[in-house]
Write a protein that binds this DNA or RNA. Structure first.
Ligand SMILES: Nc1ncnc2c1ncn2[C@@H]1O[C@H](COP(=O)(O)OP(=O)(O)OP(=O)(O)O)[C@@H](O)[C@H]1O
Length: 758
DNA sequence: TCGTGACTGTTTTTT
DNA sequence: ACAGTCACGA
């Protein structure tokens, strides 16, 4: 077929652009992805570029798969083999896997990729080892700080320690890195970071890849981070053929280090780049585009883009304000069911989008209740399950015996009398002997009571450990002797009697076994690829990538996951102040701007119809809260909206208050004191979290303490107390207070909202 | 060592 | 609401 067919002038200019750098900057639905896809096909078919010499980067694995199959549709089968097509992370894993044997990297090529949970548990361990207060320095926030540094290519050596907080981060960062190396593991950020280091510091490696990749292409360029940008520069350094497409207004991953200013950087670093603007939107109706435009126009510092459509005016956006979340979900079900039963639409025409994964729950329930199928994207529904993680841990351990995170996870699963104490001893014994825990296990397994370690651990513990060591050794032997992945998988299940362990006859046990079985099916699919690839995929290919295209059912997904997709009709739910924009983003202008872009991305996924939904009342942490309509709704002109809210009637408000009454009385009857105060505390947190832009007082660094010993203070939930001690740490005032109700508490002054009584 | 009940927090989004 | 953590007794 003619590869320039069905493209407008600008599009075909981009597809057939000559060598050098090309930046395609264009709004939603203007065909950026289509252009990139065609470009690859064009390079291969028309320019005679060999697939092997092409690198194409997409944002998700799913996008990569889709792009691959589109190109094959264009070119015919097998014309694409050898092309490097994937996410930044998978491309990096591939490079590192190849290069890890060379001694240039601090891990060998059996390295494992630690997932988010593994990473945080390493941080937890480090915090414990360093005796750091995990109430003040939350493991997740320390991890976020480390990840942030890595995304900006700040290594341990470069990390500034300009204040107390940074000093803590630095200490944790240092140990965290050590732990990863000891585990022969990398985290997601390492994949990028080490690749960049390798390319930057080793000319011959850089040359190899830069020569190989005659053409580098990147989708969703606005969401690249610093490390990714550097990596691209290195990879394109020989041929300088780099083709990127993006839209600053759709940048929604700032929190992960992405920086849309990479677009500016690109223009600066490649002054000769040709810039192509696409202005026709092929996806949406005028109403959808007008609404989207109205929303995004309120962001400052942006270059407005021209965008027109020939798809006609279309229908207005429908707005529905539900009295509560159930009604919100019910509305969705009704709207979908009506159109499906009249034959006006099919299941796959619809998408339901939300800000947070937690919101999917009620919507799912509504679908289930109505007996309607749906497709849920992401949300850790499968890979997050304990049983799934257990099995993966066993497999990882076989693959990489140095993986102590996995070891600690499963050494006593199912329970085999190896408790925390024994494990600790094992680890410290290993540290002392400069050995890996796995080696000691192996030794115990091999030599039994003749082992050096037997006596040190005691007979009972040693016997249990030796047993485990033997099991592990047998699995490794199976693998080394060329045993297949399925046989290893099954061997692990039988040896551990995992099924007996989880199938306890309950509904839940059955569920769990089904998950294990599902993982087993996956493993069988990978039988010819082997364990390495299976594990790599488990780490990199997540729930996010598993939408079954074949199913004809509405899709439920977060706004983030919706990026790059399109649907006939889109429901955007939870348009409440505090949810979208999220309460976490209220105080920072940049974050607020990103919330707005997120909404913009949501709207622009729709071809024909957008539904904007919200709920006056929403449950939160067991309690509930009212919130205002999202500020973003005000930005859409009335003339584009058709409200379907039943005039918020007195009856509804009354019933809402009913709820409050019930809740109140129940909590005060039940367990008078404690329960009541706890509940009111909850209610308080709730209303604060969702009561719109009241700035939570965020203090400038404290120099002098505001509270002094012996002061009487009052706390929202704990009542009155006496300050015992006050000190300044990390720019915050840390108090020790003795409360009448709960006794001694340590708290952070700026967060606790204490009232001074005397 | 393991199972239990009480206690506590819950940072959105994801490779 | 709910799950993960903790302290305690068996
Ligand atoms: N020249 C064209 N003729 C007809 N349809 C087109 C043309 N270009 C793009 N489209 C269609 O428009 C829709 C949007 O295209 P595409 O997904 O490539 O846009 P995009 O710019 O990547 O969007 P977004 O930035 O919103 O992800 C697709 O359905 C695509 O098939």
């Amino acid at each position: 077929m003619d590869l320039l067919e069905n493209l407008n002038r600008q599009q075909s200019e981009a597809v057939s652009a000559g060598p050098g750098q090309t930046l395609v900057l264009a709004g939603p639905g203007s065909g950026k992805t289509r252009v990139l896809t065609r470009r690859i096909a064009y390079l291969i078919d028309q320019m005679g570029v060999r697939p092997y010499n092409i690198l194409a980067v997409t944002f998700t694995n799913k996008a990569a798969r889709e792009m691959g199959s589109r190109i094959e549709d264009l070119l015919g089968p097998n014309r694409l083999s050898g092309v490097w097509l994937g996410t930044f992370h998978s491309i990096c894993a591939r490079i590192l896997r190849r290069e890890a044997g060379s001694g240039l990297l601090p891990f060998d090529s059996n390295f494992v990729i630690f997932d988010a949970d593994d990473q945080v548990s390493i941080v937890r361990q480090v915090i414990k080892d360093l005796n750091i207060n995990d109430k003040i320095h939350r493991p997740t926030s320390l991890h976020a700080a480390i990840s942030d540094a890595k995304n900006n290519m700040i290594g341990v050596k470069d990390y500034p320690a300009r204040n107390y907080r940074e000093e803590v981060v630095l200490r944790v960062y240092e140990q965290y890195e050590k732990a990863l190396r000891a585990n022969n593991a990398v985290d997601f950020d390492d994949l990028l970071l080490w690749t960049v280091r390798l390319l930057a510091e080793t000319p011959q490696v850089r040359e190899t890849y830069a020569r190989k990749f005659e053409h580098v292409l990147v989708d969703e360029f606005q969401d690249t981070n610093m490390a990714q940008y550097e990596m691209l520069r290195h990879l394109a350094s020989a041929h300088q053929n780099i083709f990127v497409v993006g839209d600053e207004d759709q940048s929604i991953y700032r929190w992960r280090g992405a920086d849309y200013r990479n677009v500016l950087r690109f223009e600066k670093d490649y002054p000769g780049a040709r810039k192509i603007l696409l202005e026709q939107n092929y996806r949406s109706t005028q109403s959808v585009l007008d609404a989207a435009r109205a929303v995004i126009d309120r962001n400052r510092h942006r270059t407005p883009k021209r965008l027109f459509t020939e798809r006609g005016a279309g229908s207005k956006l429908i707005y529905y304000e539900a009295p509560d979340e159930r009604a919100e979900a019910a509305y969705i079900i009704d709207a979908i069911r009506n159109q499906m039963s009249s034959g006006a639409a099919k299941g796959r025409d619809f998408a339901v989008m939300y800000r947070t994964n937690a919101q999917s729950r009620l919507i799912e329930e509504a679908f289930l209740h109505a007996g309607m199928p749906y497709r849920l994207v992401g949300a850790q529904r499968f890979y997050g399950r304990r049983e799934v993680k257990d099995i993966i841990a066993f497999l990882r351990l076989v693959h990489n015996p140095a993986d102590e995170v996995s070891l600690s996870r499963v050494i006593n699963v199912p329970p085999r009398a190896i408790g925390a104490k024994t494990y600790e001893t094992l680890i410290s014994l290993a540290r002392g002997a400069d050995q890996k825990a796995a080696d000691i296990l192996a030794d115990l397994g091999r030599s039994g009571s003749a082992s050096l370690y037997w006596d040190k651990l005691g007979g009972r513990a040693s016997a249990a450990l030796a047993n485990f060591g033997m099991m592990l050794a047998a699995w490794r032997a199976l693998l080394v002797n060329g045993g297949s992945l399925p046989s290893l998988f099954d061997r692990i299940l039988t040896d551990t009697r995992y099924r007996e362990y989880i199938e306890d006859g309950s509904e839940e046990g059955r569920d769990r076994w089904e998950n294990v079985d599902e993982l087993r099916r996956l493993a069988f699919e990978y039988s010819e690829h082997g364990l390495d690839e299976f594990l790599e995929n488990l780490a990199l290919v997540s729930d996010q990538d598993t939408i079954r295209e074949s199913d004809d059912a509405p899709t439920l997904l977060t706004l983030h996951a919706a990026k790059g997709l399109e649907f006939n009709q889109v429901f955007i739910t939870g348009l409440d102040e505090g949810l979208l924009p999220h309460s976490r983003s209220l105080e920072d202008d940049e974050e607020m701007a990103e919330e707005r872009r997120l909404f913009y991305v949501g709207i622009t996924r729709a071809k024909n119809q957008v539904y904007l939904l919200r709920s006056e009342q929403r449950s939160l942490y067991g309690s509930f809260a009212y919130q205002d309509a999202s500020r973003f709704l005000n930005d859409i002109p009335e003339s584009l909206l058709q409200s379907q809210s039943p005039r918020a009637s007195r009856a509804q408000r009354a019933s809402a208050w009913d709820g409050a009454d019930r809740w109140d009385s129940r909590s005060t009857w039940g367990q008078p004191e404690k329960e009541a105060s706890r509940q009111s505390y909850r209610a308080n947190v709730g209303s604060r979290a969702y009561s719109g832009p009241q700035p939570i007082q965020r203090s400038a660094p404290v120099i002098e303490t505001q509270y002094k010993p012996m002061m009487r203070v009052s706390h929202n939930s704990w009542g009155e107390g006496i300050v015992l001690e006050s000190k300044v740490e990390d720019g915050d005032e840390i108090l020790k207070v003795h409360f009448e109700s709960v006794g001694m508490k340590q708290l952070v002054a700026s967060l606790a909202k204490l009232k001074i009584i005397s």
